[in-house]
Design a protein around this nucleic acid. Structure first.
Length: 356
DNA sequence: AAAGTGAGCAACCGCTTCACG
DNA sequence: CCGTGAAGCGGTTGCTCACTT
């Protein structure tokens, strides 16, 4: 016995909207608003449509200032970056792209952007697949989304061979042996050099440095586990980061994804995401870099959580501070307080970052 | 020219979350 | 605190159209 339907399914029209229906809905809402009740709306207008259908049509198509198609490279970068970071939370991603709807972004990702990304992945992954003998089916326990993000992350990691947590298994969640093998192979691949060039800068692996723990994250002493601290040979662009907040400690990344991905190439953004993951997993930053506070407890690295085979976030050592789990739904497009990436709040969780 | 195929996208479905009495 | 209805959300479906065989 399921719940009652929201409308009389027999008497509502389904399928594509006609121009007349569009005009009626648009005209009514522009004059009277939604009245806070979508279910009652079609009756008032005289439309034989479900209220949910009206809402969807308005939000995704009729609403003013909606953009369709023609995604820019910058938008690609933002979507890519946020997808790797927070997964398929389309409403949150859409909130960072004015004029874009979650449905549009979802479709765009599923039909084009993912292929673009995976295309790079496949190309560069061809050789390592030949030699490492790891069966793709070994990761069946992961959801496709989580696996996809993990693969993207790892592949991009091995592409650029950066310093990262992959050399530091003690910080990992518990994995299935096959998953562990898969990741460790990536480490081997990445271990040939102690120098890496990222975003036009050369980084060099250096001695281990202790780092403070950021509030809300790992409650263990990671000083002995910390990854080698990258040495920045060329100064970062001071215009992009409020360095004054950190004294001599300079975080690897600058402000928000939105700001940072401007003028970046696709690959560069993905590199950035690797760095972001590394920083988070090394407890240097928190999700506040991406999400408003109320989102942070929700938007974890679900792929790792899934790998751990549990929804219990307490099982992950780097996943804590579960006190407030307000829903993501406050982030919807038509919310009165849409979430935005707030540059001024970006760094409040930093305590120490990378040092020269 | 017709049939087959696949990409793109609008819309739907059903579950979750929120708000309110 | 609980129950209920509405809104929000993400996954999925199915239609259309362009391209290929």
């Amino acid at each position: 016995m399921g719940r009652a339907p929201c409308c009389d399914k027999a008497n509502v029209k389904k399928g594509p909207w006609s121009p007349e229906e569009d005009a009626a809905l648009k005209d009514y809402i522009e004059k009277n608003g939604t009245g806070g009740n979508w279910i009652a709306l079609p009756q008032k207008i005289g439309l034989k449509r479900c209220g949910k259908s009206c809402r969807l049509r308005w939000l995704n198509y009729l609403r003013p200032n909606i953009k369709h198609g023609g995604f820019t490279e910058e938008e690609d970068n933002i979507i890519c970056g946020l997808y790797v970071s927070i997964g398929s939370r389309w409403s949150i991603i859409a909130a960072q792209l004015p004029g874009r709807t979650d449905n549009d972004i979802k479709n765009y990702w599923n039909t084009r952007l993912k292929k673009k990304m995976m295309g790079r992945r496949k190309q560069s992954n061809f050789n390592t697949k030949e030699t490492n003998g790891i069966d793709d089916n070994s990761s069946n326990s992961l959801s496709s989304s989580a696996l996809e993000r993990l693969q993207l992350h790892m592949q991009l990691q091995s592409l650029q061979n950066p310093f990262s947590f992959y050399r530091n298994p003690s910080l990992w969640p518990k994995l299935h042996p096959s998953q562990e093998k898969m990741i460790q192979q990536s480490l081997i691949d990445a271990s040939n050099s102690n120098t890496v060039v990222m975003q036009g800068q050369k980084y060099e692996f250096d001695k281990v440095k202790p780092t403070n723990i950021v509030s809300g994250f790992l409650q263990q002493d990671i000083s002995t586990n910390m990854m080698n601290t990258p040495k920045v040979e060329n100064p970062l662009n001071n215009n992009s980061v409020p360095f004054a907040n950190f004294g001599n400690n300079i975080p690897m990344h600058s402000s928000s994804i939105v700001e940072q991905t401007n003028n970046m190439g696709f690959q560069q953004v993905c590199e950035l995401q690797i760095t972001e993951h590394d920083n988070i997993l090394n407890n240097k930053i928190t999700m506040s870099n991406y999400l408003p506070q109320e989102e942070q407890n929700m938007a974890g690295f679900d792929c790792f959580r899934e790998m751990n085979g549990s929804n219990d976030s307490s099982n992950l050592i780097f996943w804590s501070n579960d006190s407030d789990s307000k829903s993501a739904s406050t982030s919807s497009w038509d919310s009165s307080t849409p979430p935005v990436l707030m540059p001024e709040g970006m760094f409040h969780d930093y305590e120490l970052g990378y040092s020269f």
